[in-house]
Computed example of a mutant assay.
Amino acid sequence: MEMKHLEYVMVPLGFTVLVGYHLWLIITIYRSPKRTVIGINAESRRQWVATIVSDPEKNAVLGVQTIRNNIMASTLMATTTITVGSLISVFVGSTSSTGKYRYILLCFLVAFLCNVQSIRYYAHASFLVTLPAGEGRKDYLAAILNRGSLFWSIGLRAFYFAIPFFLWIFGPLSMFFSCYLIVFVLYFLDFTRTSSYDPYGYVQKEEVNNKDIESVGQSGGNNFVANSCIHSPLLEGHIMTSN
């Protein structure tokens, strides 16, 4: 009875911490996307689309190959989730204790559906990237790519939610501490730790530098100055990676 009472307290508390963190993350993405890695990556994809669309004849193959890599990653995740989910469903059907396993199965089913939707959007983007330039095409393609990435992120979060439910099998304390550990790790993966990284102004800086290069070339400037203008934004930027 003491362990049962402990389960009534620890499990809801750990789950509340995990859900509360993601609600805070969603609010931060909408209000201050520059503080989150998800917001920065979304803006980076918009800049990537602008680069690809600027010269479709030259960059179409590169764009299709990049999107194909995302499709392969989503396909791998979808295959893994449906395989593990099938094994769990077989185990649930052969045992009497099914409560905790049903939550794990639900997480894997959500991950599978999200990865399937991600494949759908990426496949549609592979057609759009090869179309000739048109009005509004750049914004629409960026929106499709960001939606595909959003479903990929939700599917990955479903994996994270499955971990505490799995550890719940070994006791409520394992589930409780795993929730706090996951939130601690996700905080360092989701939020930026520097305010000097500015992907929003990178394209504008690049356009200004290109204009400066053209003006220097027209006025008879030397190649050394031009090369310095080309590489200065890259030297001033900061590189950031995420899961």
Rank of each mutant, 00 (worst) to 15 (best):
M3P: 01
Y8F: 08
Y8R: 14
Y8G: 11
V9R: 13
M10K: 11
G14M: 02
F15I: 11
V17C: 01
L18S: 01
Y21T: 04
L23E: 06
Y30I: 13
R31K: 12
S32T: 00
S32L: 02
S32F: 07
K34N: 03
R35W: 09
V37A: 14
I38N: 06
S44K: 14
R45F: 07
Q47P: 03
V49D: 11
A60Y: 01
A60E: 10
A60R: 09
V64R: 12
I71W: 03
S74R: 00
T75W: 00
I82P: 00
I82L: 14
I82F: 06
T83I: 14
I88K: 07
V90S: 15
G93M: 12
G93N: 14
S97R: 08
S97Q: 11
K100I: 15
Y101Q: 13
Y103S: 07
I104K: 09
I104Y: 12
C107G: 10
V110H: 01
V110R: 01
V110C: 08
L113N: 11
C114A: 02
V116I: 15
Y122S: 06
A123T: 13
F127T: 11
T130C: 06
L131W: 04
E135R: 05
E135W: 04
R137P: 00
K138E: 15
I144A: 09
W152E: 10
A158G: 11
I163N: 02
L167Q: 11
P172G: 11
L173W: 14
F176C: 01
F176I: 03
Y180D: 02
I182F: 05
F184K: 02
V185K: 02
L186S: 05
D190R: 05
P199Y: 03
Y200I: 06
E206T: 13
K211H: 06
G217E: 15
G217N: 15
G221M: 08
N223Q: 15
V225N: 04
S228V: 13
I230A: 07
G237S: 15
G237D: 12
H238K: 15
M240H: 11
